[in-house]
Design a protein around this nucleic acid. Structure first.
Length: 852
RNA sequence: GCGGGUGUGGCGGAAUGGUAGACGCCGGGGACUUAAAAUCCCCUGAUCCUAUAGAUCGUGUGGGUUCGAGUCCCACCACCCGCACCA
C-alpha cells in the first residue's frame, strides 16, 4: 500500500531525462520493424506554446507511444515553421532582429514542449529559417524551374499608398492598411508562380485514394480545385475584335443580354484613352483582393459602347466592364444571363438590362414572370428557338456540338484552381534564387552558390522590403555574362516551407534536400494531425509539392499523408466589462453605447455567489461566450502554469478526455482538477497490486480483456475520449473488487493502457511494481479472445415503441424462448392490457418489440 | 457572396436504425475527522403523481420513411470555420 501521493514535480523531469538518456524515441531508419511515421503540423514559433499546441501534440504523442507499444519503429519528429510575418512585426515594434526573435522563441517553446514529456525524436529537429533548410528549398525550387513548373507574370496585390508597401490580406482591415489607415488599392506586380494547375486533375483524382482523410476535407479540396466543364467561344465585337468567353451554362445562351469583362481585361485596358474608362478602371482598383470582398462588393459596370453579336440570333448586346468579373478565372469575360445567374441578375437589375426566362419548371411556364431573383435551378429550356423543350443537360450538349460544328467554339474544362503566387515582398522568408541581368534577363543562381542567405544587417525603420533597400545585398554579378546584375528581392511564401518539411524529417543528408531511399522507408506519413484551418491551402500545397517533386524524378511518392486528422480548438469562457466614455460633442448616437470593451484574463476574475467580479477593480464582469483562446480576448490559459500546478500527465489527460478530438475542447479549471484527482486515484490503485492475492474474479478479468481490445480500437480511431471513458470504467471496477489474481491483472492492464496517455505516472508505477525496464519500451498487453464474450445479455422489451421492461437471457438464446420470456413479463402484460398482438419483432440478444 | 461544419441534461459528451443521457465535471446529501484537506458512499433530464411503484414528455424547428429514428430522407433556423499574401 502506498499512502504517499504521486508527485509530478519530481517524477516528470526524472522520466523525461531517463527517456532522453536511453534515446528511447530516436527513430532508427534501419530497423526491420514495421515503420510508423506520426506527424503533427509543426508550430510557428510565436513565443509561447499554447493549449492548442498541447492538444495537437498530445494526440500525436499518444499515437506514437501506442504504435511503439504495438511493435512499430516510430518516427515522431518536431521542428519549427520559422519564417513569417509576426517576426517582422516584432522587429518593427520591439526593434529586435526577426532571426533573434525567432531563435529565442524556439528555445523557450522547445523547453515547454519537453516539460510535457512528448515522445519526440529531437535529433531531427530543424527550423525552416536555418540556411541549410532553406538552401535545400532553393535547390528544389530551381529543380522545379528546370522542370518547367515555375514562371513569372504580373498579378494583383494589396497596395498601401502611404506606407508604399504590399499588404497581406490580414493586414487589410475594412479596406484600409492596418498601420497607415490609408485606403488600400490593387496594384500589379511581376511575380513568381508555381504551376499547380498542371496538377489539377491529379490532385483531384488523388483525393479518391485518400480513404483515411475526413470526407469534409476531401470535399473542400474538391470544391477548391473546382473542375467544371462548359463552352468556350468568341463573340464578334462591333469594333472588329473577338471576345472569348467561357460559360458553364451554354444551355442558357438565348437568355444572354450583355457581356461583361474584367477591369484588367486587354479590351478594357485598350480603352483607357477615354478618361471615363480610365476613371472606372481606377474605381475598380479600390478595395482589397479577397474573394469575400470581391463577391460582396456592389456590382459596378461601365458600358463601353461596344456591342457583341449573339452567335445564334445575331442580336447586338452591350459590352460592360464589370468589377465582379475575375481576370484569373476562365477568359476574364462572361456572357451575362440575368434570368439564371444571381450576379448577372443583380447587375442587369442595376443597369436596366433585359432579364429573360429561358429555363422553366415546365414548358407551360415559359412566359411566367421572373421573381426577385435569378433561377439557377434545373428545368426545361424555353424561349430558345431550337433548344425549346430540351433538358438543361441536353441543351448544353447541343449548343457545344453546334459551336464545334460551326467552328466558333468548343467544349472545355475549366478549373477554379489558380496557379500559386509565391512571391512575397518581405525580408523574413526564403530568398528566391534568381538574378536579374540587363543583358541575360532572368538567370537562376547556380546550385553551387546556394544557399542564397539573408543579410543580417537590415532595418525595419523605413517601410517596404528591407532586401530591396539593403545597400549591398542585392548587387551581384550575372552568372552567365559576368556583368553587373541584381538579385531577386522577393522571398518565397512561407507555405513553401511547410510543403516539404515532412520529407526533411524523414531524411536529412547534408548535400541534398533528402535521400529518396531513406524517404521511401518512412513515407507516407501514417497519421498527420493538425487544425482544420489547414484543410485547403497547406494540405493542397504539400500534396502538390509531393507530386511535383515526384514528376521531376526526385522520388516516387504521390501522396504525403496517408491519414489526416483535423482536431478542434481549445476554447475558454471570455470575461469583459464595457466602460462608458464621455462622448465627444459631435457624437450623435446613444451615449450609453459610447463605451470601450475591456477584456479580462481568467486569473483577473473571481467568482462570488456565482457572479463574476474583477479582482483588481471589484466591478461586475460579464461572462461572455466560449471561444477559441486568443490574446485579443485574453481568454488564454498558459500551459506552463498548469503543468507547474498539476503536472504534465493531468494536462495530457485533460486534452484527451470528454470532447471528441475533432471538436472544440472548452478548458476549465474544474476539469483539470478532476484529471489531477484521477492521476492520484490511479497512483493509489497501482499501489494495490497484491502478489499474495489468489483466486479468480471472472467478471473483472473479462472487463480488463475487453478494455485492452476496446482502448486499442479507440486509440487507432483517434477516439481518445472513448478510450478515456473505458479506462474510467475499468478503474472503478478494479477499485471495488476484492484482491485476486484477476485484480492484479486488471491493475497491470490499466497501467499499460494509460502508458501512452500519462507516461510519467506509468513509468513511476511500473518502477514501483519492481520492473526495471521502461514502460515506454513495453508491449501492449495481450488479451484472451475467449474472455471477450459475455454469457448473459440484457434484452429490452418494447411495446408501443416504448421500453416496458428488460429481461436477462443467455447469449444466443432462440427467438421463441425470448419471445416467451418477454410476454411472461408482468409489466409488459400490464402495458398490453389484453389488446391483440399483431406482431412481435425479436432482435436476438438485443430487444423484443411487441406491436398491438 | 461561395464552400465546409456543428446543434443531445446545469456543462463536456456516449449511443452497428434497437434500453437516450455511458464516462467525466458541476451540484445536493451522508461517512470519516477536534477541524479542514484528502478519501469513500448515495442522489442528480423535465413534468405529473395516489411517490421504494407508475405515467407522460424529451436529442435545434417543422414534416416524412419505419414495428422502432439522436441516427435515414426533405425543408428550415441558429451558431462556428475557410475563401488563395495569417500561420
Amino acid at each position: 500500500m502506498t499512502e504517499n501521493r504521486f508527485d509530478p514535480s519530481n517524477a516528470d523531469g526524472r522520466w523525461q531525462r531517463a527517456w532522453d538518456a536511453a534515446g528511447t524515441f530516436i527513430a532508427d531508419s534501419d530497423s526491420d520493424k514495421p515503420k510508423s511515421y506520426i506527424l503533427e503540423m509543426f508550430p510557428y514559433p510565436s513565443g509561447r506554446i499554447h493549449m492548442g499546441h498541447v492538444r495537437n501534440y498530445t494526440m500525436g504523442d499518444v499515437l506514437a507511444r501506442y504504435k511503439k507499444m504495438q511493435g512499430c519503429e516510430v518516427l515522431h519528429p518536431m521542428g519549427w515553421d520559422a519564417f513569417g510575418m509576426p517576426a517582422e512585426n516584432a522587429a518593427m515594434e520591439k526593434k529586435v532582429h526577426p532571426g533573434a526573435w525567432t531563435r529565442s522563441n524556439i528555445e523557450a517553446m522547445k523547453e515547454q514542449l519537453q516539460r510535457i514529456g512528448f515522445a519526440l525524436d529531437w535529433t531531427r529537429e530543424f527550423a525552416t529559417c536555418d540556411p541549410e533548410y532553406y538552401g535545400h528549398e532553393q535547390a528544389l525550387f530551381l529543380d522545379m524551374y528546370a522542370g518547367g513548373l515555375v514562371y513569372r507574370r504580373s498579378s494583383e496585390v494589396n497596395w498601401d499608398p502611404v506606407d508604399m508597401t504590399v499588404l497581406a490580406n490580414e493586414q487589410v482591415i475594412d479596406g484600409k492598411g492596418w498601420r497607415s489607415g490609408a485606403e488600400v488599392e490593387k496594384r500589379k506586380l511581376d511575380q513568381w508562380f508555381l504551376k499547380i494547375t498542371d496538377f489539377a486533375e491529379e490532385l483531384l483524382d488523388g483525393l479518391g485514394d485518400l480513404k483515411h482523410w475526413p470526407d469534409k476535407v476531401r470535399l473542400m479540396q474538391e470544391n477548391w480545385i473546382g473542375k467544371s466543364s462548359g463552352l468556350e467561344f468568341a463573340f464578334e465585337l462591333s469594333n472588329g475584335e473577338k471576345l472569348p468567353v467561357y460559360t458553364t451554362r451554354s444551355d442558357t445562351i438565348f437568355g444572354a443580354s450583355f457581356c461583361a469583362i474584367a477591369a484588367d481585361h486587354p479590351i478594357a485596358q485598350g480603352l483607357t484613352d477615354d478618361p471615363a474608362v480610365a476613371a472606372f478602371i481606377e474605381e475598380c482598383k479600390r478595395g482589397g483582393t479577397t474573394a469575400a470582398e470581391l463577391e460582396t462588393a456592389d456590382k459596378l459596370g461601365f458600358d463601353t459602347g461596344i456591342t457583341a453579336k449573339h452567335p445564334f440570333t445575331g442580336e447586338p448586346m452591350p459590352v460592360f466592364i464589370a468589377n465582379f468579373v475575375l481576370m484569373d478565372y476562365g477568359t476574364g469575360a462572361v456572357m451575362g444571363v440575368p434570368g439564371h445567374d444571381q450576379r448577372d441578375f443583380e447587375f442587369a437589375t442595376k443597369y436596366k438590362l433585359p432579364i429573360a426566362r429561358v429555363v422553366a419548371s415546365d414548358p407551360a411556364q415559359a412566359d411566367a414572370p421572373m421573381g426577385g431573383e435569378a433561377e439557377p435551378g434545373d428545368g426545361v429550356i424555353v424561349n430558345s428557338d431550337f433548344l425549346d423543350g430540351k433538358s438543361v443537360e441536353d441543351a448544353k450538349a447541343d449548343v457545344i456540338n453546334r459551336a464545334e460544328a460551326g467552328e466558333w467554339g468548343k467544349g472545355t474544362t475549366v478549373w477554379r484552381l489558380r496557379d500559386w503566387g509565391i512571391s512575397r515582398q518581405r525580408y523574413w522568408g526564403t530568398p528566391i534564387p534568381f538574378i536579374h541581368c540587363a543583358k541575360c534577363d532572368i538567370v537562376p543562381v547556380p546550385k553551387d552558390q546556394l544557399p542564397v542567405t539573408l543579410p543580417e544587417d537590415v532595418d525595419f525603420e523605413t517601410p517596404g522590403n528591407p532586401l530591396e533597400r539593403h545597400p549591398t545585398w542585392k548587387h551581384t554579378t550575372c552568372p552567365k555574362c559576368g556583368g553587373d546584375a541584381v538579385r531577386e528581392t522577393d522571398t518565397l511564401d512561407t507555405f513553401t516551407n511547410s510543403s516539404w518539411y515532412f520529407l526533411r524529417f524523414a531524411s536529412q543528408p547534408v548535400d541534398a534536400p533528402f535521400d529518396p531511399v531513406e524517404v521511401a522507408k518512412w513515407m507516407p506519413v501514417q497519421h498527420y494531425i493538425g487544425g482544420i484551418e489547414h484543410a485547403i491551402l497547406h494540405l493542397l500545397y504539400a500534396r502538390f509539392w509531393t507530386r511535383a517533386l515526384s514528376s521531376i524524378g526526385k522520388f516516387d511518392v504521390k501522396e504525403p499523408f496517408a491519414a489526416l486528422f483535423t482536431q478542434g480548438m481549445v476554447t475558454h469562457e471570455t470575461y469583459h466589462r464595457d466602460e462608458l466614455l464621455t462622448p465627444p460633442a459631435d457624437y450623435v448616437g446613444d451615449p450609453a453605447n459610447y463605451a470601450v470593451r475591456i477584456w479580462l484574463s481568467p486569473d483577473e476574475v473571481e467568482f462570488k455567489d456565482g457572479k463574476a467580479f474583477g479582482k483588481a477593480s471589484g466591478k461586475p464582469i460579464t461572462v461572455g461566450r466560449v471561444v477559441k483562446m486568443s490574446k485579443s480576448k485574453k481568454n488564454v490559459v498558459d500551459p506552463d502554469n498548469i503543468i507547474a500546478n498539476y503536472g504534465a500527465d493531468a494536462v495530457r489527460w485533460f486534452m484527451l478526455s470528454d470532447s471528441p478530438p475533432e471538436r472544440d475542447l472548452p478548458w476549465s479549471e474544474a476539469g483539470i482538477e478532476g484529471c489531477y484527482r484521477f492521476v492520484q486515484r490511479l497512483w493509489r490503485l497501482f499501489g494495490q497490486v497484491d502478489p499474495s492475492a489468489t483466486g479468480e474474479d471472472k467478471a473483472l478479468a473479462r472487463k480488463a480483456h475487453q478494455a485492452i481490445v476496446a482502448v486499442a480500437e479507440d486509440i487507432e480511431a483517434l477516439s481518445f475520449n472513448k478510450a478515456v471513458a473505458r479506462i474510467y470504467e475499468l478503474t472503478g471496477a478494479a477499485e471495488k473488487a476484492a484482491p485476486s489474481e484477476s485484480r492484479n491483472f486488471a491493475i497491470r492492464a490499466i497501467l499499460h493502457l494509460i502508458a501512452p496517455m500519462m507516461p510519467h505516472l506509468a513509468e513511476e508505477a511500473h518502477e514501483l511494481l519492481g520492473e526495471s525496464a521502461l514502460i515506454a519500451d513495453a508491449a501492449w498487453p495481450d488479451h484472451d479472445p475467449a474472455m471477450l464474450v459475455e454469457d448473459e445479455v440484457t434484452i429490452a422489451i418494447q411495446h408501443k415503441g416504448k421500453l416496458r421492461d428488460t429481461i436477462t437471457a443467455p447469449k444466443g438464446a432462440p427467438k421463441e424462448d425470448i419471445e416467451a420470456l418477454a410476454l411472461a413479463s408482468e409489466k409488459v402484460q400490464r402495458s398490453i392490457d389484453g389488446a391483440d398482438i399483431r406482431k412481435v419483432i425479436v432482435v436476438p440478444d438485443r430487444l423484443v418489440n411487441i406491436v398491438t
